[in-house]
Design a protein around this nucleic acid. Structure first.
Lengths: 154, 154
DNA sequence: ATCGATGCAAAAGTTTTGCATATAC
DNA sequence: GTATATGCAAAACTTTTGCATCGAT
């Protein structure tokens, strides 16, 4: 699941185009948020992203509000997607990679990704059967990962 | 998806037994929370439940904290299950009905339920393949329901 | 009588908003 | 120069916690 379909340059161009066509401005803050999400494979809370930027770019001034505002923007544009964690908010990941679903470990919080053709097809069928215009689907398998099973004995 | 497998009496007995065996007390508040969730088919936020109880039982004193505490208890006991809504917290539903997944309408928020054997089987396979001990799975198909499609033209 | 449960209010988180200032265009 | 974006702090929510009191056993 490591393979990015698009290079960062391509993604950035797409983002710039998007901004332009909506009369929005291209700012360093917006770029950094996208870059952090593209480059660091993984799933991040808004605060994670805020901290990563503060750490990696100590000279840039940025506020948590900008992170939230930009994530909303990026998610609307499908450049990032989010996965929910109950009341604890969302984690975001890059949205233009290969589609996949998630295995979430209850013990250590680790997230594995998978892709399954059968599931994908079946979802289409179900949406059709219910006259639903599907725009997205979320599938999480929740449990205990291999690592944590061996640590605590089973 | 309307069929409850257990009568309310059976559910309540199970709850009482559970409480007893954990040295917890049977209170009116706890019963009402379970009853509201059992009787009103649907998906409720803690606040929904709080308001329903205030409305239906004006004489009972109850605080929102009790709702949260009891929902945690009920969820641990599998008497209710929850479904997440991004940062907006969780909705709870009765947990001993037939297992099912959800179709969520982005426009009106309606939740439809479905059960699909192929998906269920495939999830088992995927968990096994990843050495995951699956305790739960969440599948949501997000989109626009039939009703809302016709209202806004497609 | 004991010990857990409750309501309330305060606290802790998380996310959003208002506004003056800064910055892209 | 104008309009949008930003940081900051305050506000709005949601959820949790501490504590005195209540109530089930």
């Amino acid at each position: 699941m490591e393979t990015q379909i698009l290079t960062y340059r391509e993604v950035l161009d797409r983002f710039k185009k998007l901004l332009k066509s909506n009369n929005l401005k291209y700012t360093k803050q917006r770029e950094l948020i996208l870059e952090i999400i593209y480059n660091n494979q993984g799933h991040f809370t808004p605060e994670d992203i805020y901290n990563l930027i503060k750490q990696s770019y100590p000279d840039i001034r940025i506020g948590i509000a900008t992170i939230y505002r930009t994530l909303t923007l990026l998610e609307d544009a499908n450049l990032v997607t989010s996965i929910s964690f109950g009341a604890k908010g969302k984690k975001y990941e890059f949205g233009l990679g290969k589609h996949h679903d998630h295995l979430v470990c209850l013990v250590c919080g680790a997230i594995e990704e998978f892709y399954d053709e059968t599931i994908e097809n079946q979802q289409e069928l179900i949406a059709k059967k219910h006259n639903f215009k599907m725009t997205n689907h979320i599938m999480k398998i929740v449990g205990v990962c291999k690592n944590c099973q061996s640590k605590q004995g089973s």
